[in-house]
């Protein structure tokens, strides 16, 4: 024998190495990237089969499916990164339909030159989030685009879950008299990201709230409360999500500003930039519309869960042909809480 080890492949260099075009070409480099960087971290029986698709057992009930593309800058932020965010976001979209999330699929668009070490951190974070949530990533894909054609990493995740027959949660089910509950303080994810931007440069102890909400939702459903609708107020914030529900259900809403939970740092950062926390993104909060008589029991069930400790009753649903979401201000007046217009831009005036 001549000393050449059969099948030896030099391991990926996670310290100095970078994504290059061969990692997306379908050859040996791609196979190595998938095996060493992805499969080894996300490992589970389905992914390990190495087929083009995963074959999965499904419990009885109706299938719920959702997909979400994740782009975020910076990729690493206080409280999380694009990896765990892409797991939480899709789990939450499935869970707010009342479903038990079962499986995730993930597809990555990598930019040429992206450090392999950073990619490994992102995948580790995904693996940890999926492990904590007990929702495995069962299939995936990677593509590489040329330098300058992407922003490091984009991740699209698709989730499936099941919901039992007769369990109906939908944004068109809010009725006059219902109560509106938010699961905790608002605006943390959006402001954590904003504070990191170079041109704003805040030193603020604001941490993204990114979290998987299916555990909290299970506790809420176990309380037996008549929940009409659940939704996670991500982009556009609480204001936009409530406007969506008001339009779907053909109702109006009245919020109480004094009841809205907002952390002091988030409020201060919003003041600085002329932003309104009602329009800032959340990644680990939900809004619940619940029948009046069950509002207290639901709130109690939420308070007992770690992700619902600051849950608060923030408003009521009423009849309104215009479907306005309004708010009684802490000052004693009234205002409209409208849809988000365009993009939230920092203001100087």
């Amino acid at each position: 024998m001549n000393g050449v080890r059969k099948g030896y492949v030099r391991p990926l260099d996670l310290r100095q190495g970078r994504v290059d075009m061969t990692h997306g070409s379908g050859g040996r480099a791609m196979a190595q990237l998938i095996e060493e960087l992805f499969t080894s971290r996300l490992g589970n029986a389905y992914l390990g089969q190495g087929n083009d698709a995963a074959v999965l057992p499904i419990p009885p009930g109706r299938l719920v499916m959702s997909t979400d593309a994740h782009v975020v800058s910076p990729l690493f932020f206080p409280g999380g990164d694009i990896g765990c965010l892409s797991v939480h976001g899709t789990i939450n979209d499935v869970a707010v339909m009342g479903a038990t999330p079962l499986y995730l699929a993930a597809s990555f668009i990598l930019e040429e030159g992206f450090p392999l070490g950073d990619l490994a951190r992102i995948v580790e974070s995904m693996a940890a989030a999926a492990g904590d949530a007990a929702v495995p990533v069962v299939t995936g894909d990677t593509k590489v685009v040329q330098k300058g054609m992407g922003d490091g990493v984009y991740i699209t995740t698709t989730g499936v879950g099941v919901v039992a027959e007769g369990q109906e949660l939908s944004g068109d089910r809010a009725r006059p008299g219902d109560r509106i509950i938010v699961s905790g303080s608002i605006g943390e994810h959006g402001m954590a990201i904003m504070a990191q931007r170079e041109s704003i440069g805040f030193a603020a102890p604001i941490v993204s709230d990114t979290a998987a909400l299916h555990g909290l939702i299970a506790a809420m459903r176990a309380s037996g409360a008549a929940i009409r609708a659940l939704r996670d107020p991500t982009r556009g914030g609480v204001a936009t999500t409530l406007n969506e529900i008001a339009r779907q259900s053909g109702v109006g809403m009245m919020l109480q500003e004094s009841a809205l939970p907002v952390q002091a740092e988030v409020a201060a950062a919003c003041e600085f930039l002329g932003l309104d926390p009602l329009y800032v993104a959340n990644e680990g909060k939900l809004l619940a519309i619940v029948a009046l008589e069950d509002a207290d029991s639901l709130l109690a069930a939420m308070h007992a869960h770690p992700l619902g400790q600051r849950a608060a009753l923030i408003g009521t649903v009423h009849r309104d042909a215009q479907h306005f979401v309004q708010m009684t201000t802490a000052f004693g007046g009234r205002r409209i809480v409208d849809w988000l217009t365009g993009e939230q831009l920092p203001r100087i005036c």
């Binding site: 009245m254 009423h318 009849r319 309104d320 306005f324 309004q326 009234r334 409209i336 409208d338």
Partner: peptide, 17 residues
């Protein structure tokens, strides 16, 4: 206009609940 549209137009259209 934006202030009236965003915060106050219920006074033109909607009846207060």
């Amino acid at each position: 206009c934006a202030a009236h549209y965003s915060f106050g137009r219920f006074t033109d259209l909607a009846e207060a609940p």
